[in-house]
């Protein structure tokens, strides 16, 4: 189902788990994989100087340097590529990471983008500004699903037996569901539809009584039936649940309970209040905590 995969890699340890999944998928699905690396962010006005994201050094970019970086990437993954027939291309560019990943996605139109988790403190670069990380920005705008692998995945593609779909009843969430269903059917695996009822007081303004909570859970279950279950005409092995709590914690707990190999979520584009817009902070937290890869679908 994925013929073309765009693997946006930092070519560092942060992307190692993602790389394993990406190469396994490419091999299993005989897909073309494009290794895409943003080697540096332009700095210093209109000079040719670029801050190399790996070495943190300022380098002068020319074609030679770019080919050298591409060769470095090949070397970095040489072990994983050894003895495997993988249809591979490598591209390194200069720019602001999220923008260049999106540009490449627009160019090659992949079926799936694979990204590693946060590079942590390294990403606390001055270019991040206050509008969110590379991941958030790519997830928000990309036209295709994005697979994010942060922690060592318990299993790899080809052995998916349980998918958790985190629903939030938004338009994007409908898209995410379509995708989750498609994968579940293709993989012939379980699909667990889940919604977390947010009861954190700062969200609701006041705490809810248990009766109110249970009332809402019932409502949401009905919503799931109407919105998602109705679309699954011939799918039998599914379940649905609504739990109350802090959404990301509940999703992670739920996924663990269901031995999920994959979580599918919509990247909510709804803006949260405050001067530090943490767009989709739920998703970020799930990615950080979940024991399996997460797929973000927005379109």
């Amino acid at each position: 189902m994925f013929k073309k995969i765009l693997f946006a890699t930092s070519a560092t340890e942060a992307s190692d788990h993602a790389a394993r999944v990406a190469f396994n998928m490419a091999a299993a699905l005989k897909a073309h994989i494009n290794l895409f690396h943003v080697l540096g962010v332009p700095t210093r006005g209109y000079s040719q100087v670029v801050l190399d994201v790996k070495t943190k050094e300022k380098v002068e970019i020319d074609d030679e340097y770019i080919s050298w970086v591409e060769e470095e990437i090949r070397t970095y993954y040489a072990n994983q590529l050894k003895d495997r027939k993988i249809d591979l291309s490598i591209k390194a560019v200069v720019g602001i990471p999220h923008r260049e990943i999106l540009r490449q996605a627009k160019e090659i139109k992949p079926d799936l983008i694979i990204m590693g988790g946060s590079t942590g403190s390294d990403e606390e670069s001055v270019y991040k500004s206050n509008t969110g990380s590379t991941l958030q920005r790519v997830a928000k705008a990309a036209q295709c699903p994005i697979l994010i692998v942060n922690r060592p995945a318990a299993s790899f593609w080809g052995g998916v037996s349980s998918i958790v779909f985190g629903a939030d009843f938004s338009k994007a969430s409908d898209k995410a569901f379509e995708f989750a269903l498609k994968v579940a059917q293709a993989m012939k695996c379980e699909l667990h539809i889940f919604h977390a009822l947010d009861i954190t007081s700062n969200h609701m303004g006041l705490s809810l009584s248990q009766d109110e909570i249970e009332e809402r859970i019932r409502k949401n279950l009905n919503l799931i039936r109407a919105r998602y279950v109705s679309k699954m005409t011939d799918k039998k092995n599914f379940s649905m649940d609504v739990w109350e709590g802090i959404p990301y914690v509940e999703i992670v707990k739920y996924a663990r309970e269901k031995h999920a190999d994959l979580i599918v979520m919509a990247h909510s584009s709804r803006k949260l209040e405050g001067d530090a817009p943490k767009i989709g902070s739920n998703m970020e937290q799930v990615i950080l905590r979940a024991g399996c890869p997460v797929i973000s679908v927005n379109h």
């Binding site: 210093r44 006005g45 209109y46 000079s47 100087v49 002068e60």
Partner: peptide
């Protein structure tokens, strides 16, 4: 501090 082209000139960084 970076006007007039100053920002961009590697030689005078």
């Amino acid at each position: 501090g970076g006007g007039g082209g100053f920002n961009g000139i590697g030689l005078f960084r």
